[in-house]
Amino acid sequence: MTTDTLPDRIDRARRGVAPGGQGPRPRTGKRGSPLSRAGMTLVLFALPSLVLLILLNLFPVIYSFLQSLQQGTPSTLPWETPFVGFQNYIDVLTSDQFVQSAIFTLIFTVVGVFGSWIIGLLLALLLRTRIPGGGVFKVLLLLPWIVPVVVSATSWNFLVATPQSPAPMLLAALGLGDVNFLGDPVLAQIVVCIFKVWISFPFMMMMMSSALASVDTNVYEAAKMDGATSWQAFRGVTLPIISRTTYISWVLMTIFCVNDFPTIFLLTQGGPVNATTSLIVLAYQYAFQNLQTGPATAVAFMMTAVLVIISTVLYRQIQKADVE
């Protein structure tokens, strides 16, 4: 019969030893370091990937920022070009072209985000109802998003680019005169914005469809029993429930619109008379047409700063929606 004391029994219980057994002897001596051998092995395995990620992401950012402080060309190295400090930022901010590009970028982004969101939400609500051929209809609505933007831009150029295109000829046949969609600055801006909405609404439709799928139908039944109309149920029930997904889609679409180079460049190349030159197109013109990498990277960093601010504001709205 064992004469173990209470501390011995507790020690055996911690080590998983049955009563009367000896079990593994407790370790003596100094404790090992917090980072065990297995942990060191994992760190060593992950270290090459971490170094690669730093080189692929952090190094280009630092290199570009150095270029924004210098007066160089795409073919010169930072240590071969004169240092001008923040003069590139000052020159860009005080130029008329930057102001015009910033205004058009704002218009292009607002129309692209909210235009595609409204159409996408309406179509998502429509697809929740039972309509004949709903599956085929849904696939057809995804085509503007699935088709490569080069193909879509080529098709739109065929429709509106010249006076001999189908759309201007149709308007002329209706007695509306000769309309030059891509030759008039205002019409060119309208066409570019409509084209952006057209290729973006399927993305918003998918986002809103996934959000609406999580809404419990019993909530609508309760609202209907309380006497709420369809519009009141939509405004008071649907919109608050899908607000988190809505803010996320706004953040993503804002980034897509501000950084959208092919949509504008393939349609108008920033013309006519720079009417459709967005900030990303302006940065391209600085870098590859004027061979001025300093102003180009300065524009890019200012765009990044604005996107970070907008994303932070919308992210706070996402957090509030989660709390509510």
Rank of each mutant, 00 (worst) to 15 (best):
I107V: 05
N259V: 02
T277R: 02
V99F: 10
F201V: 04
Q100A: 13
T276C: 09
L122K: 07
S209Y: 01
Q100E: 00
R316L: 12
C193A: 00
I119N: 00
G20Y: 02
T254N: 09
A296N: 10
P132K: 04
V160L: 11
G120E: 05
I90G: 02
L176G: 12
W117E: 11
M253E: 14
L176V: 09
L279I: 08
L35R: 15
D216Q: 03
S68L: 07
L53I: 14
P82V: 04
T246E: 14
Y220I: 11
P163T: 09
T76E: 08
S101I: 01
P132C: 02
G183Q: 12
A275K: 04
K224C: 07
V150S: 01
F83S: 06
P132M: 01
V111M: 02
S36P: 15
A161Y: 14
F256M: 02
R37G: 03
G23P: 10
V306K: 06
T245A: 15
L6E: 02
I194E: 13
Q70D: 03
S75N: 08
Y286D: 03
T2M: 08
N57Q: 15
V323I: 04
V84L: 04
W198Y: 07
D178E: 14
Q22I: 15
S243A: 00
L282E: 08
A300M: 14
T154S: 04
L6H: 09
V197W: 15
L143W: 10
A124S: 07
G227D: 03
V299G: 09
V313C: 13
V215S: 08
N57E: 12
T277W: 11
F288N: 06
N57V: 04
A296P: 01
V110D: 00
P60L: 01
